[in-house]
């Protein structure tokens, strides 16, 4: 549900997309998931990150879509790509070999260490809800230099205990990724429609570092299924600028 928090000027979904876009630095090579991550990455490319290289798992390298792709295999991704390669190659030569700086993922459920579930709610063999499954996410989460995750906030999504770990974030805490031999550094930010969370450098637990305008710490806590750690210096996310909103809305209108 998109909540209008600023007298009709922008919605919390727009704040989420814009805040996620700001995470993507110019010039990075980014493996983009479909949906929210793709929206954010394309806003970033039109704003502050014109030299970001967007890679989609359908084998499209350096795509510059003029509208938001409806699927990971949208024709606009291949037509505007610098190179098109097969799916075996994109995962093996490009992702696994360590050529990607940032993985940009969505999620159905996330825990305090930014581990992700997109597989099942309930027991695996007798699921309450069967979700789509892994897709490219486990190896994106494992092999990209860092990972940015974006998903709407709710107690159903931000849970104390995942029923299934589809993609590893910081695992059980500090040192876990290194023990498992994972090459990427793991999640660096989680962007929701309420706030920004970042892993504490020591504990690796997600800390609330910034609340979006009009959102209180209590709002975030009541939408989170665990006792939230709050950073000492809590920021307020700058609201979307007129330009950011124009770019986001133009992209959406073209889609």
């Amino acid at each position: 549900m998109s909540i209008d928090r600023r007298n009709g000027q922008w919605t919390s979904d727009e704040m989420m997309a814009v805040a996620a876009a700001r995470e993507l630095a110019d010039g990075v090579v980014c493996f983009v998931g479909i949906g929210l991550p793709s929206t954010a990455a394309n806003v970033a490319r039109r704003m502050h990150a014109p030299n970001a290289v967007l890679i989609y798992e359908s084998g499209c390298i350096g795509s510059r879509p003029d509208h938001l792709p409806a699927s990971i295999g949208d024709g606009v991704l291949s037509e505007t790509a610098v190179a098109n390669v097969g799916v075996v190659e994109i995962f093996s030569y490009w992702l696994q070999a360590g050529r990607i700086d940032v993985g940009f993922l969505g999620a159905a459920q996330i825990d305090r260490f930014a581990n992700i579930n997109t597989t099942v709610i309930g027991a695996y063999d007798t699921p309450k809800v069967r979700l789509p499954g892994a897709g490219g996410a486990p190896e994106i989460a494992a092999n990209c230099g860092e990972v940015i995750i974006t998903l709407p906030h709710s107690r159903r999504a931000f849970v104390e205990q995942l029923d299934f770990v589809t993609s590893l974030g910081h695992g059980a805490g500090p040192g876990n990724r290194e023990q498992l031999g994972l090459r990427g550094r793991g999640p660096s930010a989680v962007i929701s429609d309420l706030c920004v969370l970042r892993p504490d450098p020591d504990t690796k637990e997600l800390n609330l570092t910034s609340v979006h305008p009009g959102v209180s710490v209590d709002d975030v806590q009541s939408a989170t299924g665990w006792e939230l750690a709050v950073a000492d210096e809590l920021a307020i996310t700058p609201p979307p600028t007129a330009e950011e909103l124009a770019v986001l809305r133009e992209l959406k209108a073209a889609s």
């Binding site: 075996v88 995962f91 190896e139 494992a142 590893l168």
Partner: peptide, 23 residues
Amino acid sequence: AERWRAGAAGLPFGVLRGYVGTS
């Protein structure tokens, strides 16, 4: 994708850095 590559290459299995730490 690795399973497909191995199948196409006539090998019994494929190898990757993957699945580690997942359920």
